[in-house]
């Protein structure tokens, strides 16, 4: 059905007004600083000295041959490649277990959501203590089951997994709730019709649940990807990038370069390389997950 043009125009004007406050705020507090940062990335810019020298693409070319930066990117990708599927699967799995309403599922939903409510700073402090090789809760429990000890804080091959575990613990509950809402949006009669046709559970999941969860899934995956590739706070608080740089992720590296070594231009250039990479990944994801619902 087509709207008459007066109606459409009015709608358009209203839409812009609705978007306006958000647009102004973003333009001012996100995009303007971003543009500023972009110009900084072409300069040799010491954080504590505003007088900077234009160096063209020197920062960018330096970064592409900087093994530490490449390594930090690899750590971020490693983190993302594990966390995105594991956390999404866990969140969806939990949602499937408890999406139907009853007092029991309500209780479990509440419990699973509780880590979301704990501040990331608090959670990081806690996990640092819990992971301690000799005196942490984790190894006490593992010891009881005859396993361990696991040295999440001092073994360079494991430390990143410790950060992943913390990330999943903290965030899975949030995405579970998003999935619960999505699952409840699927009309029940679809399942009933499938049952009449003799579909198995697995068939129903693949043929009905997944396709109809697509929009939710897109949201979850996009947000998880961006969060994972930008992981910073737990790294800074739990391991400080160590041991032996094994948990130095891209954003942590950028922060170190910009604020500890005061090379703001170089650090900002690194951030824009990361920006382009994350942007490309997100665009690919959006294409792959293209949904019938337009945004």
């Amino acid at each position: 059905m087509k709207m008459n043009s007066a109606f459409g125009k009015q709608e358009e004007r209203a839409a812009w007004l609705f978007v306006l406050p958000a647009a102004i705020s973003l333009a001012l507090f996100t995009f303007y600083p971003m543009l500023n940062a972009l110009t900084i990335s072409f300069k040799e810019y010491s954080l504590i000295n505003p007088e900077a020298v234009f160096v063209g693409l020197a920062n960018y070319s330096g970064l592409l041959s900087d093994p530490k930066f490449i390594n930090s990117l690899l750590h971020s990708f490693h983190f993302a490649l594990v966390v995105i599927p594991v956390q999404t699967a866990l969140a969806l799995g939990l949602a499937l277990l408890i999406y139907r309403s009853s007092w029991v599922t309500g209780l479990f939903r509440t419990i699973y959501f509780m880590p979301v409510v704990i501040a990331i700073g608090v959670a990081s402090t806690l996990f640092k203590l819990i992971y301690n090789q000799d005196y942490g809760l984790l190894n006490s429990l593992l010891g009881f089951f005859g396993a361990g000890p696991v040295s999440f804080l001092s073994d360079p091959n494991l430390a990143l997994y410790g950060i992943m575990l913390l990330g999943v613990w903290k965030s899975a509950g949030f995405f579970m709730i998003i999935f619960v809402a999505g699952l409840n949006g699927i009309p029940n009669d679809l399942y009933e019709a499938a049952e009449v046709d003799g579909a198995t559970r697995a068939q129903k999941f693949v043929k009905i649940t997944l396709p109809l969860l697509r929009r939710t899934l897109t949201f979850v995956i996009i947000i998880t990807t961006m969060d994972a590739l930008k992981i910073f706070v737990p790294v800074a608080l739990v391991t400080g990038g160590g041991p032996a740089d094994s948990t130095t992720t891209a954003v942590y590296y950028i922060y170190k370069i910009a604020f500890q070594q005061m090379e703001m231009g170089y650090g900002t250039a690194a951030a824009f390389i990361l920006f382009v990479i994350v942007m490309c990944i997100s665009i690919v994801q959006l294409r792959l997950l293209r949904t019938d619902v337009e945004y």
Partner: peptide
């Protein structure tokens, strides 16, 4: 020095943690 201190702690950590 800010670069030196980072490089030095990385050096010692590499030797201690990973026995590089």
């Amino acid at each position: 020095y800010p670069v030196i201190t980072t490089a030095i702690s990385k050096l010692f950590a590499d030797l201690g943690v990973s026995g590089r």
